[in-house]
């Protein structure tokens, strides 16, 4: 609230600098996500990799994509997001255990 007490509606240099950095990071992470998507498609389409390795690689790329999504585009890297982060990690863990348990114990 205190930042908005300026009578002119101009952003301060500090905020402009911050926004610029934020934009840069977002663009970089967006580019990286596109690149990893292209890699994923390329690996499958060209068939250069073994099936097992390809699946393994796809999993790693998928996890990286989710992390980018959460941390950069859903602002989890910012301050005050510790509790949502804890909840997301805990929820992911519970969901993983559930699916892994079912796969390992029922169908394996």
């Amino acid at each position: 609230m205190t930042e908005n007490t300026n009578t002119n509606n101009q952003l301060t240099d500090f905020h402009r600098q911050k926004n610029k950095e934020e934009m840069k990071r977002n663009v970089i992470s967006f580019a990286m996500m596109i690149v990893s998507t292209i890699i994923a498609f390329a690996v499958v389409a060209s068939g250069v990799m073994d099936r097992v390795f390809a699946i393994f690689l796809l999993f790693i790329l998928a996890v990286a994509q989710v992390a980018f999504q959460f941390f950069y585009f859903m602002h989890m890297k910012e301050k005050g997001h510790a509790m949502p982060a804890v909840m997301i990690v805990a929820g992911t863990w519970a969901a993983f255990l559930t699916t892994f348990g079912l796969i390992a114990a029922v169908w394996w």
Binding site: L97, T98, G101, L102, A105, V106
Partner: peptide, 10 residues
């Protein structure tokens, strides 16, 4: 049938 037991006890 075991799926139910797993889901129930999870």
């Amino acid at each position: 049938t075991i799926i139910w037991q797993h889901l129930f006890w999870i």
